[in-house]
Design a protein around this nucleic acid. Structure first.
Lengths: 118, 118
DNA sequence: ACCATAACTTGCGAAACGCAAGTGACTGAG
DNA sequence: CTCAGTCACTTGCGTTTCGCAAGTTATGGT
């Protein structure tokens, strides 16, 4: 009796992905991380202007889900940065497929450039 | 002055895709359509048990967005079926990429089989 | 002491969601 | 010809989530 695995809604892989990434903001945070952003303020300064509480919530959920790690990059005062785990990096092909479809059907849209590291 | 295209949130293709597909249900309707489902009751009988009002709303939005077409497959009484347009079919690579990542990170999840046509 | 910065948290009104039940147009059974 | 049944929705309503603004905590710089 280990065969009854508990999924939130169904055993469909798409469904399970949507249960963690299915909203208007989570994938944008992933996008920012892929583009090289790491710090809280960098995420809030993206053009979509994510609200602070939504960002905090999404980062927490992504960390819980193992897509992102948080660690202090300095003490006094403590400052944190976020990095994609291998699991999180694995979403790059999904983002690529979305960009291909998006650029085709939203004329004028353009992939954002990587940010330079500090 | 045609250069100032109006996007909901930003010119990022991912953002624009999320503005139409960024929720827990829309992509599941697309999945069902890709699997061969066409009628209202077929969608509501999927294991995720989408609520009727949510389904009606999503189908309407997908039709407005040009991803889906609706047409009567019989009269007396009128019955409708939904089909993916070419634009909607274009999402298959996105679904494939999601399935690949999903199967890897949600052990036990399994792609659903196509439904037979009536 | 005072201002600034980073990373959050809190409050609250507005919008979206989810469940149940209802509606209208018919069809086939008795 | 009445009545249960099917299909494709719509309506009501309570709960949850969202989104904007403002507040908080810790610390450094001058």
């Amino acid at each position: 009796m280990g065969s009854t695995m508990k999924f939130k809604r169904s055993s469909c892989p798409i469904t399970n992905v949507l249960d963690t990434l299915g909203d208007k903001w989570t994938l944008l945070v992933i996008r920012d991380l892929v583009l090289g952003k790491r710090r809280y303020q960098e995420f809030t300064s993206s053009p979509e202007k994510i609200a602070s509480n939504i960002l905090a919530d999404r980062l927490k959920k992504l960390e819980t889900g193992g897509l992102v790690t948080r660690h202090a990059y300095q003490r006094n005062p403590v400052r944190y940065e976020y990095l994609l785990t291998e699991k999180g990096e694995g979403l790059k092909p999904v983002l690529e497929a979305i960009i291909v479809w998006g650029k085709k059907h939203y004329p004028g849209s353009k992939r954002f450039p990587r940010v330079e590291q500090h």
